[in-house]
Design a protein around this nucleic acid. Structure first.
Length: 430
RNA sequence: GCAGAGAUGGCGGAGUGGUCGAACGCGCACGACUCGAAAUCGUGUUACGUAGGAAUACGUACGGGGGUUCGAAUCCCUCUCUCUGCGCCA
């Protein structure tokens, strides 16, 4: 969400930005917003002066009543009543305009960073840095579910019976590995100076509608029957909700947080749910990082954050690369974003295991996340960023494929061994 | 879950239909006093929106939403949260 003053003063820049994202369909929104904003201000002007009249008359009536001038008071009452009818009318109209205005405003994308590569869609994303050598295995790498079954680590049939498609039982060493990865990732981020958080796994509807659009909500969120509660799709939802409507002292910034949560997603309309296995599922767990900082620091944090994820994967001996999101692939709130992708020896290509975004002040403006700027004494919008540290069932795929040995066992890298009771490999069971 | 009490500015805390953006105190900022400091005294100190170069003016906001009234922090309804007691429970 952009600042209305910015749109009013820089309509051409806003239009250019929309064009860079290949969203010509959104161009009319700019004029629409400017028009609605004009209307809103006109309505407010009249409303304000009418309300001023109301206040004046109300005071006058009070005075007249006290002085016992009943007739004059009654006259003023009638006058006030007429005035108030018009006030109510304006307020109705104003509320309507404001709803349309907000709707149009939220549909206008955030300004994107100047150095974001231009491109129409995800096919035009650009490879950034590459870490560790992406090697093929000297033997055939099976599909991840087959690897998991061989290790006695998964039971999808039972999960389908208890919960349906898109769920899993992880068992034995694999379940332990799953926890080990999360615990390792948690400690990794704590060592980087982040504060570990466990947030609520359910949030109210007003928080949901704050952090996502109605369509996103429909496609993702599970609602609790009979309660005003939703299961979170990512801990970002509760973590950012935590700061809604808050003004933080400048000394409280940056907030560098790492949160753990299970994530629940309907994945409605997501084509990938038929993909066999644990790539796209209704429930997974994730270690996330969230940063809320001053505007001048968000570029720096963005760079640090995605590199932390890379560093963590590299420490687990998994080859990764940075994939820079092109203009057309950036969601509306994002200033810039990149995916961290892990190497899949089976497919001979990289696949997404995490995503890092700088939303500048767009999310903060929408949710009212401010900080008090000590220099200017003004309350200003903070910048918000989020990034995946690791989301295990999916990352497990990369882990298994990269550490698979010729004999079917899976090697456990050194840094993880202490979380696995000293084991250096998981052996074939079946 | 039941019963009672409550939610006011950065904090504490007045205010029960009109002159209340809100007494008083604390805190904070600036100034005076001082070699400097403490103490003291003085001045200032909510946010958001609209208009304006600015000073400022007007509007809105006393947990959220709705209602009564010419007028609501104050009355009514509703939701949320907090505290106390009882119940229940890892």
């Amino acid at each position: 969400m952009l600042d209305i003053n910015f749109i009013r003063e820089n309509p051409d820049a806003v239009r250019e930005n929309i064009k860079r994202k290949f969203r010509q369909d959104k161009l009319p929104l700019v004029d629409e917003v400017i028009e609605l904003d004009k209307k809103r201000r006109e309505l407010q002007k009249e409303g304000d002066s009418r309300r001023a009249d109301r206040n004046r008359l109300a005071k006058l009536i009070g005075t007249l009543m006290r002085e016992g001038k009943k007739d004059e008071a009654e006259e003023a009452k009638a006058q006030s009543k007429a005035n108030n009818d018009r006030v109510a009318e304006i307020e109705r109209e104003c509320a309507e305009v404001e709803i349309s205005l907000k709707k149009a405003m939220t549909a206008i994308p955030n300004m994107i960073a100047p150095d974001v590569p231009d491109g129409r869609d995800d096919s035009q994303n650009v490879q950034g840095e590459v870490f560790l050598e992406a090697k093929a295995k000297p033997f055939e790498v099976p599909y991840h579910v087959d690897i998991l079954e061989k290790l006695g680590g998964i039971d999808l049939d039972s999960a389908r019976r208890t919960s349906g498609n898109g769920f899993y039982f992880l068992t034995g060493d694999i379940a332990r590995l799953h926890s080990a990865i999360l615990t390792y990732a948690r400690d990794f981020m704590i060592d980087k100076g982040f504060t570990y958080c466990i947030p609520p796994f359910m949030i109210r509807s007003d928080v949901v509608s704050g952090v996502m659009s109605f369509d996103e909500m429909e496609g993702m969120m599970y609602k609790i029957e009979g309660e005003d509660l939703y299961l979170i799709g990512t801990s970002e939802h509760s973590m950012i909700g935590r700061f809604m409507g808050q003004t933080l002292p400048e000394s409280a910034l940056p907030q560098t947080l790492t949160s753990y949560s299970p994530c629940f997603r309907k994945e409605k309309g997501a084509h990938g749910l038929e993909e066999r296995g644990i790539y796209r599922i209704h429930q997974f767990e994730k270690q996330e990082m969230i940063v809320i900082c001053k505007p001048e620091e968000s570029d720096m944090w963005y760079e640090k954050m995605w590199r932390y994820t890379v560093e963590m994967f590299v420490s687990l001996e998994i080859p990764v690369r940075q994939l820079i999101c092109c203009s057309g692939d950036l969601a509306d709130l994002k200033y810039r974003s990149c995916d961290v992708e892990a190497w899949s020896p089976r497919q001979g290509k990289y696949f997404e295991v995490g995503s890092c975004s700088n939303l500048t002040d767009a999310q903060a403006r929408r949710l009212g996340i401010r900080y008090k700027n000590e220099k200017t004494g003004k309350n200003e919008f903070a910048h918000t960023l989020n990034n995946t540290v690791v989301a295990p069932p999916r990352m497990l795929i990369a882990f298994l494929e990269n550490h698979l040995q010729a004999d079917g066992s899976v090697h456990i890298p050194k840094v993880l061994q202490k979380y696995m009771g000293g084991k250096d490999k998981i052996e074939v069971k079946v």
